[in-house]
Amino acid sequence: MQQFARVQTDKGIIPIILKGDTHLDLRPLVSDITPDAIAGGALSNVDTSRLSPINGDFTYLAPISGIRQIAATGFNYKKHIEEFKMKTPTEPEVFLKAITSLTGPSDPVSRGPNQGVKLDWETELTIVIGREAKDISVVEAPDYIFGYVCLNDVSDRATQVDAEGGQHLVRAKSRPTYTPIGPYLATGIDGMNVDVWTKLNGHYEQQGNTSDMLFGINEMVAYFSTHMALLPGDLIATGTPPGVGFGKNRFMAVGDVLECGISHLGAQRHEIVV
Rank of each mutant, 00 (worst) to 15 (best):
162 D>W: 09
163 A>P: 10
166 G>R: 12
166 G>I: 06
168 H>T: 00
169 L>P: 00
169 L>E: 04
172 A>W: 08
174 S>Q: 05
176 P>K: 08
178 Y>G: 03
178 Y>H: 14
178 Y>R: 03
179 T>H: 04
181 I>T: 15
183 P>K: 10
184 Y>P: 03
185 L>G: 07
186 A>E: 06
186 A>D: 03
187 T>K: 12
187 T>C: 08
188 G>C: 08
189 I>A: 12
190 D>W: 04
190 D>P: 00
190 D>Y: 06
192 M>W: 04
194 V>W: 12
196 V>D: 04
199 K>T: 01
199 K>A: 03
199 K>G: 05
201 N>L: 13
202 G>W: 07
202 G>D: 03
202 G>M: 05
202 G>F: 10
204 Y>D: 06
204 Y>T: 00
205 E>H: 10
206 Q>A: 04
206 Q>V: 07
207 Q>T: 10
207 Q>R: 15
207 Q>V: 14
207 Q>M: 12
208 G>Q: 11
210 T>M: 06
212 D>N: 05
214 L>I: 14
214 L>T: 04
215 F>Q: 11
218 N>P: 00
219 E>C: 02
222 A>K: 09
223 Y>D: 12
223 Y>W: 14
224 F>M: 09
226 T>E: 07
227 H>G: 08
228 M>D: 01
228 M>H: 14
228 M>Q: 10
228 M>W: 13
229 A>V: 13
229 A>L: 12
230 L>M: 04
231 L>C: 06
232 P>E: 07
233 G>Y: 01
233 G>I: 15
233 G>D: 09
233 G>E: 10
235 L>T: 09
235 L>K: 13
236 I>Q: 01
236 I>Y: 01
237 A>Y: 08
237 A>P: 13
239 G>V: 06
239 G>S: 05
240 T>E: 07
242 P>H: 02
243 G>Q: 09
243 G>K: 12
244 V>H: 00
245 G>I: 13
245 G>V: 12
246 F>C: 05
247 G>V: 09
248 K>C: 04
248 K>L: 12
248 K>A: 14
251 F>L: 12
251 F>D: 11
251 F>I: 14
252 M>C: 13
252 M>A: 15
253 A>H: 15
253 A>T: 04
254 V>R: 01
255 G>M: 10
256 D>A: 01
256 D>W: 01
256 D>H: 06
256 D>V: 07
257 V>N: 09
258 L>P: 13
259 E>Q: 14
261 G>E: 08
262 I>M: 07
262 I>T: 01
262 I>G: 11
